[in-house]
């Protein structure tokens, strides 16, 4: 399996990253290289092996249902690129 231009276009779209014309070829070469490195995995038979998501076999801790957070607007709104009436502003979303 190798990664093709149209795959790159698709994933760039999913990842919301613009790729300029100039970058495109260089990027493709590098991604093809990385995928060929990754493809070394395909030689291993992994039937009946349980996937491993976490290093440690421990379970999810739970939090008591309590309100512990307060209004942070004074601190966080000034860090936003654009706000209006306590709202974060983005270009209009069309559904």
């Amino acid at each position: 399996m190798t990664i093709r231009k149209k795959d790159i276009e698709k994933i760039a779209h999913l990842a919301r990253i613009n790729i300029s014309q100039e970058e495109s070829q260089k990027l493709e070469n590098k991604l093809v290289g990385i995928m060929s490195l990754i493809d070394k995995m395909q030689t291993v038979d992994t039937a009946n092996i349980e996937p491993m998501s976490h290093a440690l076999d421990i379970s999810q801790p739970l939090r008591k249902d309590e309100v512990t957070e307060s209004d942070l607007r004074k601190n966080i709104l000034p860090l936003a690129p654009e706000t209006e009436e306590y709202l974060f502003i983005v270009p209009q979303v069309i559904e």
Partner: peptide, 23 residues
């Protein structure tokens, strides 16, 4: 519930925008 799924922010309805937006 009183608080959110993964944080201690309030789930109350109808308050001022982003007043219950914790980090």
């Amino acid at each position: 519930t009183k608080s959110k799924q993964f944080s201690g922010a309030s789930t109350a309805y109808g308050n001022e925008p982003n007043s219950q937006a914790c980090l």
